[in-house]
């Protein structure tokens, strides 16, 4: 370098190297995108300036990231030399253009399924018998537990199964898509949608169904849930990665679906 290296420039250069290495680790760039010689030269240029602990840690982190990129370069060369890897973009384009049957045939040509047997053996029967021997009678086991008193079992017709939700007319994916469409419609009209306003529609069972569907949409990243003074929902164009996700749960009271 012509001018005297400065601390600020050095920190910026090292951070840029770290960011590039991270992008390579996430397979956004080819490992050979980074000139390792130049990166090491940069490290050497700024190393004499580091005095603070943070700067030395940044230096160490950069060395670690560079070593990972070097490993990836090695892996890529091994893959290419074994003809398992060409240009990822070319291969992806090729497989995107292949038909379903051809892809399935390619899979079957290289697949050697594992043989797994599940069968009763004398040992497992012995274990079962031991468990049976130590199992207390049913009456003794349920003694002290609260039991529900209600109607005796009755024969269920198809209509009963549909009413109780055991069987569904539409499949779950279509139902989710319907709920997402409804949410998108409301969002287009009035912006962020209140969670409880959206979920509490119809009777209690409908509320539970809608809350269940929303939980899937949020988990899949199709809907963003924000919890501040109130809970709001926003549909997303693209689901994000799983980083920084938080698990939330909202109990639905049996008394008319009121929020706690």
């Amino acid at each position: 370098m012509d001018s005297k290296p400065s601390l600020v420039e050095g920190r910026k250069a090292l951070k840029e190297i770290v960011e590039t290495c991270e992008a390579i680790e996430r397979r956004r760039f080819n490992p050979f995108f980074l000139d390792l010689d130049l990166a090491v030269k940069t490290l050497r240029t700024y190393y004499p300036l580091w005095e603070k602990r943070e700067d030395l840690m940044l230096d160490a982190e950069t060395v670690k990231k560079l070593s990972r990129v070097l490993t990836l370069q090695n892996v890529q060369l091994l893959f290419q030399s074994s003809r398992m890897c060409g240009d990822p973009a070319v291969i992806q384009e090729k497989i995107m253009r292949a038909g379903v049957k051809d892809l399935a045939q390619a899979m079957l040509n290289s697949l050697h399924p594992v043989v797994e047997l599940e069968q009763l053996t004398i040992q497992s029967l012995k274990k079962g018998l031991e468990y049976w021997g130590s199992l207390k009678p049913f009456i003794e086991r349920i003694r002290g537990r609260k039991t529900a008193s209600g109607l005796s079992p009755v024969r269920a017709e198809l209509s009963n199964l549909l009413e109780s939700g055991v069987l569904q007319v539409e499949d779950f994916t279509s139902y989710l898509e319907g709920v997402l469409k409804e949410l998108q419609g409301e969002f287009d009209l009035k912006g962020a949608v209140d969670y409880w306003d959206f979920v509490k529609r119809g009777g209690f069972s409908s509320t539970v169904d809608r809350a269940y569907a929303v939980s899937f949409l949020v988990s899949y990243g199709m809907v963003k849930m924000e919890v501040n003074n109130r809970i709001t929902l926003r549909p997303r164009e693209e689901p994000p990665g799983k980083e920084g996700t938080v698990r939330l749960s909202f109990p639905i009271s049996l008394a008319g679906g009121e929020e706690p």
């Binding site: 253009r97 292949a98 051809d102 892809l103 390619a106 290289s110 050697h112």
Partner: peptide, 16 residues
């Protein structure tokens, strides 16, 4: 289960 070399070869040879 999968012979990756065979799979990649089949995929590359697959005609669009």
């Amino acid at each position: 289960e999968v012979d990756l070399k065979a799979l990649m070869t089949s995929l590359i040879l697959t005609a669009p």
